[in-house]
Structures are given as structure tokens and as C-alpha cells.
Write a protein that binds this DNA or RNA. Structure first.
Lengths: 340, 340
DNA sequence: CTGTTAGCGCGTTCAC
DNA sequence: GTGAACGCGCTAACAG
């Protein structure tokens, strides 16, 4: 069933080499031969064996992505899907495919990357959700393996990345809340070690500090990015006396959880409590009340990441190796209006 | 930098063949040699080149999935992400990776599959969102290429699949609405040609028929699975005189759109209008009002699909080739209570 | 212009 | 118990 290049050769009465050249646009093949070979290839529905071609060319025409989440269900992070879509689309545009794996952060992670890198499973990697002292980045750099990341790190290393300025995003959001009259503002942080969580928290700190507002430890809670954890964290914040009148969550999901916690206590989000999230996932727009959040163009970031990686793989140096995008505050109902 | 098997051979003072055997658990290698080779491999961080190995073994250790959506942004279908997670997890469990591509249904689709199949890019494929007279299934069968599908087709062909009984699901949902006292029930259908849409609509027809309720053409609208289309479709239904008191949407997203349309007209969903969706995506649980919907275990389906495919690839025949799962009605707020 | 030869990196017969 | 030789399907160098 499988038709190889030697089938074409036999059919055309030519050598395998000539067929290969004819197919690959070599100059030293008569136009007539080329046409004939092409026709036969078309008829026999020939498709070159990518593995064999890969062995020869030392390229797989694949980019890899390892999803670094702990829990199996990913749907809690609708975030990833758009990123995948962007990457896959851009890859397809260049006749590349996307190799997807999942591996929780931890000791097994290194092995996972080693298999991919040393085994040459893909030509390049996209690393997402960078962490403090990210070993993945260090490893890839050490191996000299092509990669780009979504997110910066704190290792003082130089590598290509795309990131969203979370500090600026949360800063804008917090300033907005302050502008509405809020003084006691809570913050629901991400798990420690995640760079994006750190940056976002920095934005909060900065905005509060500038406004001369103390950042009470009691108004800082930490979640694990899930809705449930946002609920729990908000419960803790509301236990304070006095409780905050507004809260900024590190992502939309925790913001939704915070809204749920508030509701359970009889608070009306958007009036008694202002809530702001981050990501602008579609749940944000369609929740009730709709969620004020900081928006980042995930799909386009996927496109961008993939494009940067592919360009690197082609040997073309990147004109811009490091891109920091400014996110936009999207004001909806959950943040309410001016408070007295 | 890249260490190959011949590096190990040189280091160990052995031939490449012996090293290969030592590494692959062959019997005819002295235990001592085996240990020594292993140690060296560990030290040098040896990982076999998967491409070379693939050429030899004719296996890629990859399963493929082509996402068949029209629009680039996938996040509207949170559905896919859990499926991907399930597949990727199960694949990883067996040292397989997932090759992800995207290709809109249409003429280019065949080429896309041909490249994968004839080019032997993966060992097997998972086909999702089956369609009426699905050419993908026909093609794969014709090629004798291993695959499993998520969804049945209407071609009378025999192949392994997992599906959710959408007919039963919508039937249950509709019966529930009828039980609440609803008589004028609208239905927001999926685009034609999608098998799951057809099955779900059948469930609606059946329930209505059994209850002796006419299925007015005017109470049937069609969307394209997006929230916006649900909004529009609901608008059409509400223009009828008299309008429906309840509506079943083919998926959660359109159900949310329907809720939005109702709200725009001053209707209180859960009181003035009952809305039921399908999928039980996380947005369903967290919308307001929360959405009554039909739940299917997407992540587990991903696991199941992948497991079936891998077993087939191992040459083991499947004990159960065709699985039909019964979904569960999850009652929340949007369907309201008994109406007078 | 075309064909012959030689690998790509690994696994797998066979002799030894 | 070990190694030489061959082949997987294709491309690249060099002859002819």
C-alpha cells in the first residue's frame, strides 16, 4: 500500500536519485523528466516518508510544546487552547506540525525534555509558563537547543521570548480600582515560583505603594489558579476586619471563584465588592456579572512564538528577540462604579 | 553535542551492535557488559535518535489528531482542551506523543490526511467530530490506516469509536422540560452534517413526539455552535408568537447565547424561559444562572480513545471496538422549576 | 542530464 | 558473548 520513491523510479524507468531530484526542484533534470515523474507521483499518490527524510535532513519539521500543569484536566485553563491554536496554525502555515506532551513541573520534567532534545524528536521547543530559576530554560540553553518561551525568567539569561507585561496590567487594574475610591484592596496571588504571578503581584504592590496605601499581609491571599482556590482565598480575605472592598485576582478563574465566595456571603459583586481578573478568557465576558479583567492576545502570542521559533530554525536571526506586550484593561461589570 | 550509539560503542570499546543489544534487553549479552553499557549511556546522557529508530522500526510512537474547526480561535470550544489532555496523558503513559494539526473541513482536508498517512507521520490517528458521510473515515479505512473516532458516522462502515449517546442525552433533557410543564419547546440545532448534531436533534424529536407535542418548524433554529449564533437563534425563536417557554441548545455555548438573547428581551432565564445546553463545559457550571446541561466525560473519552488506538497499534484486537456512553443530565438553575 | 555510491543513526539478522 | 554487514527511505556527492 505504501508507495515509496523506488516505486516511482521503477514506474518511470529511472533511478531513485533522479526521481528525488525531479521531485525536489533540482535544476539538473530535464523538464520532461520532471513532469513525467511528477505525474506518476500524483497518480500513485506519493508522499515522501517523513521519517526517512528526517533522518537524512536531520530535521523533523515539528515544534514541540510540553504543557506544565499539575492536574490532568486542562479545561480550567482555557488559556492554553488558544495558545495551542495559534501555534498549530502558524506551524501548519510552514508545513510544520506540533508535538504536544504534558509533564507536571518536577523532577520528571528534566527527563521529559531530555528525551525530546537528545532524541531529536522535534526541531525546536516552545516553553510556556516560565518559572523562577526555570531549569527548562537553563537546560535548553546549555544544550544549545532552539527554543522560545512565553514568559521571562529571573536568571539573567539571554534567550528569545514573548511576554505580557503583567506588572503593567495589574498596575493599571489596581490604579483603576483606586480611582474608583477603593482603599482596602485585596490580592489573590498565584502559586509561588511562577514568573507571571510574580510580575502581576509586582504591579499590585507598585500601584498600592504609589497611592500611599499599605499592603497589609492580611489582604494578600494565594490560590493555585483554580476557581475553587479563588473561592477559598476570597473567603480568607473577607474574614478580615474590615474586609477589602475590592480584590484583584491573578487570573480570571480565581476571580470567578472570588465572585462566588462573595455571593455566598450575600455580597453583590460590582456593588459591595469590586473584582478584577487577568487573562480575559471567554468566561470573563460571559460570567454574571461580567468580569473586569486584563486582556492578553493569547492566540496571537501563539502565532508570534511559533513564528519566532521557525525563523530561528531557518537560521535567520530574529530582528526582535524579546517581546513584551502591553495588556489592556477591559472594564466590565464586576468592578462596579465609583464608591462613596 | 549529540551523543549517538557509536559514541557509546567507542567509549565502551564495543561494537555498535553489541551496545544496541545491551540497551535493548537482549539475552545474548553478558550481564557485565550490559551494566557497563548502561552506565556509560547514563553518564553520557544518551537518548536514541527517535527518527533513526523510527526509520528502522517503522513506528513513530506518535498518534495524530487533526482539529477540524473553521475558525482559528479554539477557546470557544473548551471541549477540545480536555480531550487533548486526556489523549496526551494516556499517550505519555505509553511513551507516545501527540501530533496536533488543524485543518478546516473541506477539500484541503484530504491532502492533510494524505500527508500524514502516506508520509507515515504518525502510527495512528484519532478523528474527532465525525460528520455525515465522513470522507476522513472512508479514506482511512481505504488506506487501512489505524484510527479511532470520537463519534459515529452514517456510512455503515465498521471501525472503532467512542461516542456519547446524544440522542439519549437530549431526550432526557427534553423529557425533563416536558415534565416541568413546558409545551412549547424550541431547539437550537448544530450546523448540518455534524453527526453529534444530528443525534442530539433526534433525541429532541423523539421526546417531543412521544409527548404528543408537534415539532413546529418555527421552533427550530440553527446555529454554528458559537455563543453569538445561539444569541441570534434564540432571537428568532422569541420572535415566534407565541414564543417557546423552554429551549434546548445543541451545545453549552449556544445555550449561553440563548440566555443572553433572552436577557436582552427582559426575560429572566430560569423563570420566564428554561434553557438547557449540552457538554457541561466549565462555563456551564459558572454562568449565571448556572446552566442545566447534559454532561459527557470528555477527558476520560480522550483517555479511552487513545487507549483503544494504542492497543490496536500493539496488534492486540480490541475486546470492545465500539463504545457508546450514556451522558448525564445535570440540573442547575437555567431550567427553572415547574411552570404553571 | 542521469546513474552510482555513500551515508543519515539505529536495529537486526547472521556468522564467528 | 560479540561483531560485521545489511537495510529502513531518502538525499547528497560525485561520476559518467
Amino acid at each position: 500500500m505504501a508507495v515509496g520513491i523506488k516505486d516511482l523510479a521503477r514506474e518511470a524507468g529511472l533511478s531513485v536519485a533522479t526521481v528525488s531530484k525531479a521531485l525536489n526542484e533540482y535544476a539538473d533534470v530535464s523538464e520532461e523528466t520532471r513532469q513525467r515523474v511528477r505525474e506518476i507521483a500524483r497518480l500513485l499518490n506519493y508522499q515522501p516518508n517523513v521519517t526517512a527524510r528526517g533522518l537524512q535532513s536531520r530535521r523533523t519539521n515539528m515544534v514541540g510544546l510540553v504543557i506544565p500543569t499539575m492536574e490532568p484536566h486542562l479545561s480550567d485553563d482555557p488559556y492554553f487552547l488558544d495558545l495551542l491554536a495559534g501555534i498549530a496554525d502558524e506551524a501548519a502555515e510552514h508545513e510544520f506540525a506540533l508535538l504536544l506532551t504534558r509533564c507536571a513541573p518536577g523532577p520528571k520534567e528534566r527527563t521529559c525534555y531530555q528525551k525530546i532534545v537528545r532524541g531529536r524528536r522535534v526541531d525546536g521547543l516552545i516553553v510556556v509558563r516560565t518559572r523562577s530559576q526555570d531549569q527548562r530554560v537553563a537546560y535548553l540553553l546549555e544544550e544549545g537547543f532552539p527554543f522560545v518561551t512565553f514568559g521571562r525568567t529571573d536568571q539573567g539569561l539571554d534567550f528569545p521570548f514573548v511576554d505580557v507585561d503583567g506588572t503593567q496590567g495589574v498596575y493599571d487594574a489596581t490604579r483603576y480600582l483606586i480611582g474608583l475610591g477603593h482603599r482596602r484592596i485585596g490580592f489573590i496571588a498565584a502559586p509561588e515560583g511562577l514568573m507571571f504571578g510574580f510580575h502581576r503581584q509586582e504591579g499590585f504592590r507598585k500601584a498600592m505603594e504609589e497611592a500611599g496605601l499599605a499592603m497589609e499581609p492580611g489582604l494578600l491571599a494565594r490560590g493555585d489558579l483554580t476557581l475553587q482556590s479563588g473561592d477559598v482565598a476570597m473567603g480568607q480575605l473577607l474574614d478580615r476586619d474590615p474586609p477589602p472592598t475590592a480584590v484583584v485576582a491573578c487570573n480570571d478563574l480565581m476571580a470567578l471563584g472570588a465572585m462566588r465566595a462573595a455571593r455566598k456571603r450575600g455580597l453583590w459583586v460590582g456593588r459591595d465588592l469590586a473584582v478584577v481578573g487577568f487573562d480575559d478568557t471567554h468566561v470573563a465576558a460571559h460570567s454574571r456579572p461580567s468580569l473586569t479583567t486584563v486582556s492578553q492576545p493569547i492566540y496571537d502570542i501563539g502565532i508570534l512564538l511559533c513564528r519566532m521559533l521557525l525563523q530561528t530554525l531557518q537560521g535567520k536571526p530574529l530582528e526582535v528577540r524579546q517581546i513584551l506586550l502591553r495588556p489592556a484593561l477591559v472594564i466590565r461589570e464586576s468592578s462596579g462604579g465609583t464608591i462613596s
